[in-house]
Amino acid sequence: MTFKLIINGKTLKGETTTEAVDAATAEKVLKQYANDNGIDGEWTYDDATKTFTVTE
């Protein structure tokens, strides 16, 4: 399955996707991606669209 991350950061905005077997696995990968890029904020997840959003 494809999961999307929408980034609403102070210095970085955009989106990325990852392939994962489930939402929990995708969340780990996407949170690591955000952490690697210095993004720390509030996370939400929409199961209907398989989209995570992080807002700083």
Score class of each variant (00 low, 15 high):
39 I>C: 04
31 K>W: 11
43 W>T: 01
14 G>N: 09
6 I>R: 06
15 E>I: 04
42 E>N: 10
21 V>N: 14
17 T>H: 11
17 T>Q: 15
35 N>T: 09
10 K>F: 15
17 T>A: 07
6 I>T: 05
39 I>K: 02
33 Y>V: 05
8 N>H: 09
39 I>L: 07
2 T>W: 12
49 T>L: 10
40 D>N: 14
5 L>F: 04
9 G>S: 11
27 E>M: 11
7 I>S: 03
16 T>H: 14
9 G>F: 15
41 G>T: 02
35 N>F: 12
4 K>W: 08
48 A>P: 10
2 T>S: 08
37 N>E: 11
46 D>H: 07
53 T>G: 03
16 T>N: 05
36 D>N: 11
3 F>T: 00
11 T>D: 13
54 V>W: 02
14 G>W: 15
27 E>K: 07
49 T>Y: 06
19 E>I: 14
22 D>A: 03
15 E>V: 06
20 A>K: 03
32 Q>M: 08
45 Y>W: 04
5 L>M: 05
52 F>E: 00
22 D>T: 06
56 E>P: 07
38 G>P: 01
27 E>L: 15
31 K>Q: 11
34 A>D: 00
9 G>E: 03
56 E>L: 10
56 E>I: 15
16 T>C: 06
36 D>K: 08
45 Y>Q: 01
45 Y>L: 02
50 K>H: 13
29 V>N: 07
16 T>D: 03
6 I>Q: 05
20 A>P: 02
20 A>D: 03
24 A>N: 11
26 A>V: 02
55 T>C: 05
45 Y>T: 01
14 G>H: 10
15 E>R: 04
2 T>V: 13
46 D>I: 05
54 V>P: 00
56 E>S: 06
1 M>H: 14
51 T>R: 03
48 A>V: 13
10 K>S: 12
27 E>N: 04
42 E>P: 05
11 T>R: 04
40 D>H: 13
46 D>A: 04
53 T>Y: 10
29 V>F: 12
53 T>L: 06
29 V>H: 08
54 V>C: 05
37 N>F: 12
19 E>H: 11
1 M>D: 08
14 G>S: 12
19 E>C: 07
12 L>W: 15
48 A>S: 12
38 G>W: 05
53 T>K: 05
5 L>N: 01
1 M>Y: 13
15 E>D: 06
16 T>V: 13
36 D>L: 07
29 V>D: 07
50 K>S: 07
6 I>N: 05
11 T>N: 10
3 F>R: 00
39 I>H: 04
10 K>T: 12
10 K>C: 08
51 T>Q: 04
48 A>Q: 09
